[in-house]
Amino acid sequence: MERLIRGRVWKFGHNVDTDVMAPWNTISEPWETRRKTGLHIRPECVERVQPGDLVVAGRNWGCSSSREHAPENLKLLGIGAVVAESFGRIYFRNSIAIAFPNLACPGIHEGCEEGDELEIDVRTGQIQNLTRKMSFQAQPFTPEILSILEKGGLLNVLRERLGVAAPDSTGSP
């Protein structure tokens, strides 16, 4: 995981649920199919997203189900990180488990527009809106969570515990 993440913002509202990020009837499909059907509230975002782009959202991003496909779909789309006012708790845990940085940052929704460029320091939680010259402080990750992220996810933590070599350093699923 990179310490500094820099990218262009796609902005979403409040209470965006996991059913929208990963509809149930798609989650057993191969990635090519999921890619087209995920995030159906903003189909144009799926078309035009560039690797390294960021998501900024309001409160309760990822509320609802335990399906890990929700953060996984975003990660596979190439989203570098999500910054939201708050998260659905299972979504949030799942994002840590797959080493996909999601930061809770009060004030970010107001202080950021679509297309802005942000720079995120994953270790400290400092966020700069480079377009608007504003800075924000996200809730920093605890050392426990940071260590899971830095190892490339919980599966790598498990590999380490079992003494099995990791296939690669990214921990991507």
Partner: peptide, 11 residues
């Protein structure tokens, strides 16, 4: 009781 995802369940 709490829900978790696939990777956490594997762990």
């Amino acid at each position: 009781g709490a829900g978790i995802g696939l990777t956490e369940m594997t762990y």
